[in-house]
Design a protein around this nucleic acid. Structure first.
Lengths: 218, 218
DNA sequence: AGATCACTGGGGTAATCACCCCAGAAATGA
DNA sequence: TCATTTCTGGGGTGATTACCCCAGTGATCT
């Protein structure tokens, strides 16, 4: 190896973050130049320290990991990003790659897999787990229509309705908030449920929970 | 210190687990005698290796952390248990203490807090974060009525209904599964919602999501 | 023995949900 | 220009929800 790989570690759970930092600092070819405890801090510290690789968790306060990846990649395309997550959720992979991630590793991996992934990515490669690779392969096999979107392929209005539903609003309330007739809100709701293949309100909330889309109980 | 504190680390995410193991092995007075990747394995390895302290995550496959704590404490009351979790959820604390936990630490803590907590617990003490301590204090101030239970203070039938609801079952289906009249299931459902101060199905699922009670989308 | 509580059912009702039918206006794109 | 999609509404319907009333059973506790 020529020189040490400069990494930034972003995870909101301090113990998890420290564990990752230790794994990386113990690795012969890595060095940790910065840590971040939320998405916004990750973006800011990436801009200021310009690391080679950002190791980032998906679920973080203030700014989601996905949005952080987007901003980092937009501002500094040369910075490689390895997403470290607990979600095996396939639907996350495509938008993450579109956002600029070079790797996707579930936390349920060995520490050697982490260092291997970083080395590979630093060499200009990419690193995705077997499932992620399969999902990406499927996406390229398909035209491009079903691909995209974190949700499904909901329209703006449908996504609005979706979020209001999981906030506990009734169709009538949703209609009032959106400034349309109850029937229109109902129509968007039905379309949304069809597209996501959901058939009850419980399904909707559970779907949101799996995707990590549930709002904070404010 | 007289001798090394023998610990068992249980967490289903390998990277997280390895990070914790490193923190502990780097500590001068600790040694990791076993690791477990799920609740059942945690119980089994605790029985076979008899560590001084079990450091255990709450959300794990096969057997929940809470149930694992119960079994470990029942089988080996001398083994001290430190629960390490991402949940700040207060409702978990009381049942965990009842189950036999000697400490409760959120993962968003410094590594020194972890080693301090283990040292303190190994010395026969307990260790809870400021929030957890406050919750426990409140519980002792109250008579004992609102205290208890991970859920609220639901009866067996109410808890059954609760779980079936968040699995997406309708009242009629729930009644069929439980072998009672629809009216009875409806009655339990209403009682359950009153006790938990929930007023819609969305509320129920969101509540379950916050408590980490949602079933895997099997 | 009496009280309390969980569990079991019944009746009823207003609101909501999930889904079907229909169609016009506006924007986008082939 | 024509087609598709999106958004906007309407009518209707059966199922479900959330909540009120009522009462008998059995177990437990004092």
């Amino acid at each position: 190896m020529t020189r040490s790989i400069r990494t930034l570690v972003a995870d909101d759970h301090q113990i998890v973050r420290e564990g990752i930092v230790r794994i990386l600092t113990d690795a012969p070819n890595c060095e940790v130049v910065a840590e971040a405890a939320d998405g916004l801090e990750a973006v800011e510290k990436t801009l200021s320290t310009k690391p080679d690789i950002v190791v980032i968790d998906l679920t973080m306060p203030r700014l989601s990991g996905l949005e952080a990846v987007r901003r980092i990649h937009k501002a500094l395309p040369k910075v490689r990003i390895l997403v470290l997550t607990v979600h095996e959720d396939e639907e996350y992979i495509v938008p993450l790659v579109q956002a600029g991630a070079s790797g996707y590793l579930v936390k349920d991996s060995a520490s050697t897999e982490l260092t291997d992934a970083i080395t590979k990515i630093a060499d200009g490669g990419v690193c995705f787990g077997p499932q992620a690779t399969r999902v990406l392969a499927q996406q390229f096999q398909r035209p491009a229509e079903i691909a995209a979107d974190p949700y499904g392929s909901l329209t703006d209005r449908e996504r609005e309705v979706f979020h209001l539903v999981i906030e506990g609003k009734t169709t009538k309330e949703i209609a009032a908030i959106m400034g349309v007739a109850p029937k229109t809100a109902d129509h968007h709701r039905s379309n949304m449920m069809n597209k996501l293949d959901l058939h009850t309100t419980v399904d909707i909330v559970r779907y949101a929970a799996r995707k990590g889309l549930l709002p904070d109980p404010t």
